[in-house]
Design a protein around this nucleic acid. Structure first.
Length: 867
RNA sequence: GCGGGCGUGGCGGAAUUGGUAGACGCACCAGAUUUAGGUUCUGGCGGGCAACCGUGGGGGUUCGAGUCCCUCCGCCCGCACCA
């Protein structure tokens, strides 16, 4: 018997045993037997260099789920891969002169070892990185399939252009309007780019949200808002001095009679045209362009406009003319980039109208007002109102719409517009098509060729993959693919004349939009094997950070639909269950000079935090998400070395619910470590009090043994429920309760019964802890004398008759105040309970001789006596 | 501004969804062992001397409210000046 558990020897030992016995090799087809499948997936990591505590939390949650489901009899798929393309590899290339591929694969090697040290139950044979040609090859194939199917389009779009570095910048590389590296003022430049037509599926993506009942409501709502469906109408206003029309989008066609102006966006083609001739307009557009960079600035900016000198005819009112303004609050990217202004019923329009002294014409009155009240409401709003009326009501001053409610008036207005050919009912989405072209090297090459004669020609499938060249230089600004001496020069596949490869690469969100499908058959010569994806998908439990609530999850949902359309998949929704975990936080520390300090630079002396080396005073700052800039980071590898992976896993699961932020603290980690040692003592410390493995179950148990058995089985039942619902913090608390029950257990007369009950309780404790602390459980299982592995042992089943108590403790209240409690047989009828309660001395005193008006008995819980 | 969420001991958090508030852990205090500290073990730990009071404040529904309703305050997250 050893008295101390040594994670430094136990953890590598069991990791090797699991690997050698192929414990986590995925089984499929005939091998899988009749077990139901369960696909557990954590969002795969970007190989940035080292894992951080956020990874530890993410992969621990997934691993517990995978191990638990496995023990519960599921055939589990739990793979791991790398989201390996992206800008940091190019930055490393530029800053440290290391090839992106080398940098990336070295990081993967480091991080793979770190993840393996966590003892994850992963089928490593399915591992891949998105920068493997084997992977992006199939992505290129998917793109060609999408192209054939009409899911792809090419159109012009603006990019951030750095004129000094001669390169396109991502939004996050633009800081205060300047390039992050060059400091040059960033320009908007129009490029022709590839887009996936996600807007074609906007309605389906919206409707699909209703089926995702195992997703957080919050994420579904965020996606709904992002898609931003709104029903309304397009209205074509005739310009007064030309044959042209101004097209606007409105959600309130019922308020057309209240229109007093039209406004177009500074980015509207008409604005640009007018600016060429009119210096005032030109100046206004320049001013609008300056404020239009950040959201915060946009929010504060005053609503301003400039007249265009143009005017339009009102579609319903003969002879009525509306002036056209250019207004800074009209967005080019939404609707048609033009609006009609109805100041009485839109706050922004009202602000604008008051500023430029435009008429305010109320055309909707609140419901339930009398004739005089309506008149007063209209007069007040028209002359001096500061607040637009946007609620439901009844149409007034609106010709043929008068008397209709808002919804009916909308329908009637649209109908009239359509018969007059001056508009149509339409649905508008905020969602825009997904631009997937990136002018960068470290990404999947877009498999097309540009030929001056034939136009855009897809790369023949026999020529796939289009590989990234490795002999590239980052000395020159711009895309290395573009200035590579030979790579882009090819013969046109159609006419054989010299042509050029597309040098843009895919947005890395493309890579992560189908990797979950590739894991089902990672070695296939096709993007997917239908038998495999049909078996494994959807992902039963997907786990990751809420920061991906919109883009990654929406793109993956889109891709799944598109791949269904091309026959690669047979379903629309990739992720059946989604769990979004909270962040890992830590205290922050600042030295006397105000610089951030790492946690290991701080120690506590006499209750005061001081700097380890200098002894200077340290200020403890707020608890924040771990970040390199604030230095409040804890290196998982150091923790695993010091305390072991099991302790790290245990602590990260403790205390905080997984969807909330968890605070990492040294004291907490030590507490978790102490528990691993206590656990070990409970298993090994009192061998005389353990029955041998396989001992016959006693025919009867005395009271103490029976109580221990109840505690063990109740813990088991509760934990099964907790783990099924990812309530790991509660599961941890239950283990502590069982451990406390074992610690305080004292055998009664019947020693055989006590030994048997104690072994049973210890075995249950080991097996329920196994998903969370797998190495410790394995070591303990062996120590108990088992020759099998805990990982191969089915989840125990709680005995139903141990879950119901034969006596219960009930609270006794008098007038809602708790006065005493009562221990009584669980099956006692209400009369007996009432009588027993009334007989209690404290109750009698509280009643104080008053007449009893009512007695409420909630069986097994409470008795309330009302006097 | 709009939308969503939250507010419980010194701290993280429990509370079977309307039925004994504070499970479990951390921190802290006392005692035992060791005695140099740590470890380990036992006990205590919302406030108040008490009657009692306590789940952000106020009001309500109910036999009974942390839980439901109204209202106010505070914090967090998301976003779209969205016509």
């Amino acid at each position: 018997m050893s008295t101390r558990y040594n994670h430094r020897t136990a953890e590598p030992k069991w990791q090797k045993v699991w690997t050698d016995s192929a414990s986590f090799k995925t089984r499929e087809g005939a091998d899988a037997g009749d077990k139901p499948k369960y696909y557990v997936l954590e969002m795969f990591p970007y190989p940035s260099g080292k894992i951080h505590m956020g990874h530890v939390r993410n992969y621990t949650i997934g691993d517990v789920t995978a191990r638990f489901k496995r023990a519960r009899g599921f055939n589990v798929l739990h793979p791991m891969g790398w989201d390996a393309f992206g800008m940091p590899a190019e930055n490393a290339a530029i800053e440290r002169n290391i090839a992106p591929a080398k940098w990336t694969y070295e990081n993967i090697a480091t991080m793979r070892n770190q993840l393996k040290a966590m003892g994850l139950a992963i089928d490593w044979e399915r591992e891949f990185a998105t920068c493997d040609p084997e992977y992006y090859w199939h992505e290129q194939e998917l793109f060609l399939d999408f192209l054939e199917k009409g899911y792809v389009t090419r159109k012009k779009s603006y990019v951030n252009w750095d004129p000094v570095d001669n390169t396109v910048l991502a939004n996050e590389q633009v800081i205060d309007g300047r390039g992050w590296r060059s400091g040059a003022l960033v320009e908007r430049r129009e490029l022709t780019q590839w887009f996936l037509k996600i807007t074609d599926m906007a309605d389906d993506l919206l409707d699909g949200l209703n089926t995702l009942t195992r997703w957080p409501d919050k994420v579904r709502l965020m996606q709904k808002n992002w898609i931003g469906r709104s029903e309304g109408a397009r209205v074509f206003f005739d310009l007064t001095d030309s044959n042209e029309k101004l097209e606007v989008f409105t959600t309130r066609p019922d308020t057309l009679f209240g229109a007093s102006f039209c406004a177009i966006s500074p980015g509207h083609p008409l604005s640009v045209k007018l600016a060429a001739k009119n210096p005032a307009i030109d100046a206004f557009l320049k001013e609008a362009a300056l404020t239009g960079t950040t959201e915060a600035a946009l929010e504060k900016v005053e609503k301003k406009g400039v007249p265009t000198g143009l005017s339009v005819k009102h579609p319903f009112i003969e002879g009525a003319i509306l002036p056209v303004f250019i207004a800074n609050f009209v967005l080019m990217d939404y609707g048609t980039g033009a609006i009609f202004g109805c100041p009485a019923h839109d706050q922004r329009d009202l602000d604008f109208a008051r500023k430029y002294h435009l008429p305010v014409i109320p055309v909707v009155a609140p419901n339930g007002l009398g004739t005089d009240e309506i008149k007063l409401f209209i007069d007040t709003l028209a002359t001096s109102g500061k607040e637009a009326f946007t609620g439901d009501g009844v149409a007034v001053n609106s010709g043929f719409l008068d008397g209709l409610d808002v919804a009916a008036a909308k329908r009637a207005a649209i109908e009239k517009l359509e018969t007059q050919h001056q508009g149509e009912g339409t649905v508008n989405y905020r969602l825009r098509d997904w631009g997937i072209s990136r002018q960068r090297y470290w990404g999947t090459p877009i498999p097309v060729i540009h030929c001056s004669g034939c136009g855009v020609v897809p790369v023949p499938r026999s020529d796939l993959p289009v590989r990234l060249p490795e002999d590239v230089s980052f000395d020159k600004p711009g895309n290395p693919l573009d200035h590579h001496p030979t790579w882009k020069h090819v013969a046109c596949p159609t006419c054989r004349k010299p042509a050029l490869r597309e040098t843009d690469t895919f947005d890395t969100f493309v890579d992560s939009s189908w990797y979950f499908a590739r894991f089902c058959s990672p070695k296939s010569a096709k993007p997917t094997e239908r038998a495999s994806v049909d078996y494994w998908l959807p992902v039963d439990q997907y786990i990751g950070g809420v920061e991906h609530a919109i883009l990654h999850l929406l793109y993956s949902r889109y891709f799944t639909r598109a791949m269904k359309g091309t026959g690669h998949l047979g379903l629309s929704e990739p992720f059946d269950g989604l769990f979004t975990q909270g962040m890992v936080t830590h205290e922050t520390y600042k030295g006397e000079d105000g610089r951030w300090l790492f946690p290991e630079e701080v120690k506590i002396v006499n209750g005061e935090p001081v700097h380890v080396e200098t002894g200077e005073r340290v200020t403890v700052g707020p608890i924040e998400s771990m970040s390199k800039s604030k230095r409040n980071v804890i290196d998982p590898t150091a923790i695993i070395e010091q305390f072991g992976a099991d302790t790290a896993r245990w602590f990260i699961l403790s205390d905080s619910p997984p969807e909330r932020d968890v605070q990492w603290s040294e004291a907490g980690a030590e507490g978790a470590w102490r528990f691993t040692q206590r656990f070990w003592r409970l298993v090994t410390g009192d061998e005389d009090m353990l029955a041998p493995i396989g001992a016959a179950k006693p025919a009867a148990f005395d009271a103490p043994s029976e109580a221990l058995r109840r505690a063990a089985h109740q813990t088991l039942a509760a934990m099964t429920d907790d783990l099924d619902n990812l309530r790991f913090n509660r599961a941890v608390a239950r283990v502590y309760e069982l451990a406390n029950a074992l610690s305080t257990f004292e055998a009664g007369r019947d020693l055989d019964a006590a030994r048997w009950a104690r072994l049973e309780a210890v075995e249950i404790m080991v097996l329920v802890v196994a998903p969370m602390m797998p190495h410790l459980a394995e070591e303990a299982w062996r120590e108990l004398g088992h020759t099998t592995m805990a990982v191969d042992t089915p989840w125990p089943i709680a005995e139903a008759d141990l879950l119901v108590e034969d006596s219960v403790t009930m609270a006794v209240q008098v007038n809602g105040k708790r006065r005493d409690e009562l221990v009584i047989a669980a099956d006692a009828d209400n009369k007996a309970v009432e009588a027993a309660a009334l007989a209690l001395e404290k109750v009698e005193k509280a009643i104080d001789g008053k007449p009893i008006r009512k007695v409420i008995v909630v069986p097994g819980k409470i008795i309330n006596i009302v006097v």
